[in-house]
Computed example of a mutant assay.
Amino acid sequence: MFRSYLRLAMFALGLLIGVQVPGFIDDYSKRVTAHRDESEQSLLGFRQTARQFFAGDLNALVAHYRASTDDVMRSDADSIAHLVERNSLMEAEWLAMQGPWYAQVWHLASDADQALLQETYDAYSYQILLAPQAIAWGIGCALLLAWLVELVFVGLGWTLGYGRKHKTIAYEKRHWR
């Protein structure tokens, strides 16, 4: 009886955890888009200057600033280089989040920007979406968690000898006769 309730509780917990996955992916994707748009806005003036003087090459603009004899220009070169690098990162993250759901999950699990991931996690508010992908994630996680807990308890019970019939005593008596 306890095992049945435990199984139900694990299923419910897995369901609640699973429905969070699409919401978190969506929040991360929106955060990446917002940072990407802000990054584009920050580079707008520099892009115009690069188009006018360097055929649109921002790296050539940065190299020009670095080659300047003016200390202010050289200092600004580092600032612009940082903006260009940040824009490249946001563009790569944005492109990764444009793929199918399994590619997005893989990206978040293996290659996402850790600062953005932490920022998303810190601002995330738990929600229950009733979208088809949330329901699928919920049921999948619920079944997986219930199965894993069941497997652990059955394995522990088997290891500790619960639920097994002890036929070894009868075998030993027969062997010694």
Rank of each mutant, 00 (worst) to 15 (best):
residue 148 L to V: 13
residue 47 R to A: 08
residue 112 A to Y: 02
residue 147 W to N: 11
residue 6 L to H: 01
residue 80 I to D: 00
residue 73 M to A: 13
residue 111 D to G: 13
residue 107 H to S: 06
residue 5 Y to H: 10
residue 9 A to M: 14
residue 20 Q to G: 07
residue 27 D to M: 14
residue 47 R to G: 02
residue 176 W to S: 08
residue 76 D to L: 14
residue 170 A to V: 11
residue 27 D to F: 08
residue 76 D to T: 09
residue 93 E to M: 09
residue 98 Q to V: 13
residue 126 Y to V: 14
residue 36 R to H: 15
residue 29 S to T: 14
residue 61 L to V: 05
residue 26 D to F: 10
residue 134 A to Y: 01
residue 10 M to I: 04
residue 177 R to M: 05
residue 78 D to M: 07
residue 98 Q to T: 12
residue 145 L to V: 09
residue 127 Q to T: 12
residue 48 Q to T: 12
residue 51 R to G: 13
residue 63 A to I: 09
residue 19 V to C: 01
residue 176 W to H: 06
residue 92 A to E: 07
residue 165 K to C: 12
residue 124 Y to V: 01
residue 45 G to E: 09
residue 21 V to G: 01
residue 62 V to D: 00
residue 123 A to F: 04
residue 123 A to G: 08
residue 90 M to D: 04
residue 74 R to G: 03
residue 51 R to I: 08
residue 169 I to W: 10
residue 122 D to H: 07
residue 10 M to W: 01
residue 121 Y to C: 07
residue 6 L to T: 06
residue 170 A to K: 08
residue 144 L to M: 13
residue 117 L to Q: 09
residue 51 R to M: 13
residue 26 D to Q: 15
residue 89 L to G: 04
residue 119 E to R: 08
residue 136 A to R: 02
residue 77 A to G: 03
residue 124 Y to D: 02
residue 23 G to H: 04
residue 162 Y to W: 11
residue 145 L to H: 05
residue 157 G to F: 07
residue 159 T to D: 11
residue 153 F to R: 11
residue 163 G to D: 06
residue 157 G to M: 09
residue 6 L to S: 04
residue 142 A to C: 08
residue 81 A to S: 10
residue 67 A to M: 06
residue 175 H to I: 06
residue 35 H to E: 15
residue 149 V to C: 11
residue 36 R to Y: 12
residue 150 E to I: 09
residue 89 L to W: 05
residue 43 L to E: 02
residue 162 Y to D: 06
residue 65 Y to F: 13
residue 115 A to N: 10
residue 66 R to A: 07
residue 109 A to T: 10
residue 134 A to K: 00
residue 176 W to A: 08
residue 160 L to F: 12
residue 103 A to N: 15
residue 120 T to N: 01
residue 93 E to R: 06
residue 102 Y to I: 12
residue 149 V to G: 05
residue 146 A to E: 04
residue 54 F to V: 05
residue 165 K to R: 15
residue 13 L to A: 11
residue 33 T to V: 14
residue 44 L to P: 05
residue 146 A to F: 03
residue 63 A to V: 10
residue 125 S to D: 09
residue 61 L to M: 06
